[in-house]
Amino acid sequence: MKQSIFIIKENIALTHDVWKMVLEGDTSEITRPGQFVNILLDGLYLRRPISVHDAEDGVLTLIYKIVGVGTARMSEMKPGHSLDVLTGLGNGYDVTRAGARPLLIGGGVGVPPLYMLAKQLCAAGCEVTVILGFRSARDVFCKEAFEALGARVLVTTEDGTYGTRGFVTGVFDEAGDYTYTYSCGPEPMLRAVYNASGTSGEYSFEERMGCGFGACMGCSCKTLYGNKRICKDGPVLVKEEIVWEK
């Protein structure tokens, strides 16, 4: 974990409520896809955890959905503004378990962290298929970005206004054979993927956090191998340890 100051280079709307922020700063602690950063915002007490969309050579890209006061404030920030950011948080995905044909499944604001993962897997020569699930056509983002990496992209929307109508699990057959699953999204989606997936896999969870680095026990969950902290031992859990509680 490292604390450093990042400068906003770009902050633009991708959809009606999803924004992309590009920052410059020290990205050296971000070592795996699926990690997150924790941002201190003026006038707010707790830092805001945001998943890393991409990080390379001092350029950090975040894609975030406006869900509350913190993310609303982020969307109002202009290029040139500086932010106090803790980087290198969370375990992230393990790319070495992908096999030849990994299947990546993202729902809504769970889509962004899969980008850096897909980028590394494509670069490693994997045949990557990505399923992106959204509520409606107006919520779709990042499809072209995944395609540009060389991944095959299937999109579902709940109302059928874009791609295949229904949930992400509805296009598993179309995705074909896969060797491993990586997933990030709302808990009901993760659970559906868990039940539909025929392989082992990694699932990224979300929880309200206090510190983001394992000190406060604010985001604990039960697993088959004992209690874990979503922020420090997660946010990525492997399929074999997950306990569904809620």
Binding site: L44, V69, E207, G210, C216, M217, G218, K222
Partner: peptide, 23 residues
């Protein structure tokens, strides 16, 4: 002790609420 169910944390003006529950 596992402690309380989540959410255990909430933002407040210049502070926070916690209900970890002695995990």
């Amino acid at each position: 002790r596992f402690g309380n169910a989540t959410p255990r944390i909430a933002e407040c003006p210049s502070g926070m609420l916690n209900a970890v529950g002695l995990q």
